[in-house]
Design a protein around this nucleic acid. Sequence first.
RNA 1: GGGCGUUUAGCUCAGUUGGCUAGAGCGCUUCCCUUACAAGGAAGAGGUCACUGGUUCGAGUCCGGUAACGCCCA
Length: 865
Amino acid sequence: MDASYDPQAVESRWYRVWEEAGVFRPEVNPEGEPFSIVIPPPNVTGVLHIGHALNMSIQDVIIRRKRMQGFAALWLPGTDHAGIATQNVVERELAKEGLSRHDLGRERFIEQVWAWKAKHGNRINEQVRRLGFSTDWSRERFTFDEGLSKAVGHVFVELYKQDLIYRGERIINWCPRCHTALSEIEVEHEEEIGELTHIRYDYTDGTGSVVVATTRPETMLGDTAVAVHPEDERYKDAIGTTVTLPLIGREVPIVADDGVELEFGTGAVKVTPAHDPLDFEIAQRHGLPAVKVIDTEANITRAGGEFFGQDRFEAREAVRHELNKQGYMVKIEDHHHSVGHCSRCGTVVEPMLSLQWFVKVGPLVGPSIALIEDGGARYVPKRWENNYFRWMENLRDWCISRQLWWGHRIPAWYCDDCDEVMVTIDEPQGCKSCQGSNLTQDQDVLDTWFSSQLWPFSTMGWPEETADLAEFYPTDVLVTAYDIIYFWVARMIMMGVHFTDGEPFRDIVIHGLVRAADGRKMSKSIGNAVDPFDVADEYGADALRLALLQAASPGHDIPLNVEWIDAARRFGNKLWNAVRFALNHVESGSVPGEGGYPTEPGAIDRWILARLGEVTVEYDKLLEEYRFSDAVGLLYNFAWSEVFDWYLEMAKTSLRKPESAEATRQTLGVVIRDLLALFHPVIPFVTEELWSELVGDGLVAATSWPSPPQQAAPAGMDELQALVVSIRRFRAEHELSPKKELAVLVDDPNDITSGWWRDQLEVLANTTADFDGPPAEVAGHTRITSGSLQAFIPLAGVVDIEAERPRLEKAIAEAEDLLGRSRAKLDNPNFTERAPADVVAGEERKVEEFSAKLDKLRTQLSELG
RNA sequence: GGGCGUUUAGCUCAGUUGGCUAGAGCGCUUCCCUUACAAGGAAGAGGUCACUGGUUCGAGUCCGGUAACGCCCA
């Protein structure tokens, strides 16, 4: 083995071995209980970003641990066809050749997209492998593959039959660049400073005027009414009369509607039913016509008169200019308002009246809320449940049709002869109403999320009753960032509850977003995005995973610091060298793959085995609770601070003694082996490599989860460690060389030390120890207390006696402070009466300890004179 | 406007049924190339846990209020 660890060499080696051994297939544990996770499918066009790395690192820890615990663990991978995103990518490619999708036509364009997927779609899978994620590739799925498409068709038809899908004219959000309708949550609202234009509308009878205000003056071209609140005294007499629209000359009514806010602006609002959702509702209530004045290109329609053909923003200026010129402009003022943008391309969306397909969500909401309320599934952390409830309660019907080509075609056919609509999975042979044969399929495709919402069960073969569905559904855990709870999680719950009569998953583990080191969102445009593969190349995939998991406090965003990754990389090297040390003493291959704990461990061996037992139990518990950061922190500190810093150092002494060497050899082997196994789900590559060096047989990926026997630690270990640290500190404070051997006399009234203890003290603190203490003549020694023990160091020839004074005074002050605190508590009868007995006993112990220590220190100080 | 989160060491963050002499990594100071590791070891400095009021024997932790920052929804 090399003296230092090179992640590149190791990480390229193991994935293929795991795959060929079939360890990622649940069949590897044929007797095991099923345990399953479906991956949140990344966009097939995409590349994995650091957020995916976090998301999948968490899932891999879960699934690798369960696998090692004997479950038939399935982690199902796959990708999402990502309608708009993918179509945009391919259209951009075409644009380079000066072509648009319309030049190719629908069929050839879709062929192009499939070709693109065949060429580039595998990149994500390679990336998943590079980071070591243990997905079962034999079950890989794609939202647009045959089976999943069948599920989509089935769901659409069923929902239609159940009257939960309908087609209708509603205000939808239109992206004029993507040329498609969007759902509410595909629109991102941004606060912007706009201008509020006040316009005067004259009463048609010439008796006066009303002023309305708008941030989108161009929409006045499509006004079909002015609305006021029914109880607004200012307009009481005007209700039922008409105004004449400036520029257009149309006579429109003044209507009274509760939806108008009395307080806002002048209290009168212009009504543009075709381009505003609230206005549309008003129009519905009053039977007003809708006039479309903006088309799908965001240009003004013929209904806009002289402004026909102008872009909406040009028209905004032109309308203002003309209103001003004709004297209808009252004023313009600055105004903060939120403007919707397409979440895909950032273009300002246009609310627009349009004939689209919708999911009626009302009947689906109740059972989906009940599932969480009744504990059928739960969010971790729990606080996300409130967000979920609030969102579900305010849900509006979901626009699912998209004017794209790449996606699941809507399974609806229209009869050209009689207007019959037929919704069926397979193309109908003729019109069921007029028997005509001129049928046209709906041109639109479904929102990508319509297929993603079926992912937990469509991937298992649903609606067929497959073996996988029976075994692995419902899934156990869903791991996702909070930003897609609405897009995805909520809808999976709705569909899971509705169609599979149960929860799609039981635990919904929510994690945060990975942010740049300065806390800002990572984005390509700011240029602060960290590419996980750059990190993997420089530091190793293991280091990236370890760093992310250490930082992954439940549900919180994590700023990514390179320092953390670097520290994680150094841990790999440390582990590497610990194994090298072990292999200097333990023959490679002699360590059993599991079990093999020594039957007669020595004292230091019992100590580390006891700690290993405790840490294993605690680590396992933390992982079960999804507290990854705490779990990894615990194991990391145990490995480094206890195994490496203490046990390995103590083992050196033990291994030199024939009577203790064999037990320590065995212990060293199994402790390091168990560390590798416990760490494996977090850092799979380096642990597998080291396993092959140390154990030699089998794979750590396929081994059993460690269960070290519970041991009692030997007496004296705490005292030994405290004493060693104190002696080292004494040295440091007096600037004594670590090489200078100190003579120490130890007084051990309770007789807790024995041979091993003395050996360790001599080596670890570089002392020659005499256990006959205390010395006859105490003066001239410094003394160090450690539990019931005292150690005396003769100062003659070592340090000037006076030099001990400040050290002692400081130690006395500290002890006094601590003693004071504990005494104060115990002096308080309320404390002794009300605090739990063990807490009181703890304080009593402290008082004893601190006063004994203080006595000794004071004695020593007085001896200085 | 409504909701949620954050505020702890120079920096980035842990701290889950209230018992803390408040931790980690990085950075900083001093010493050490001791045959696993200098990508290392040893020792150390550094915090009125945002502010404020309360509950409690006891509050970083629970409750009320204030401030700043961030996110989500309208």
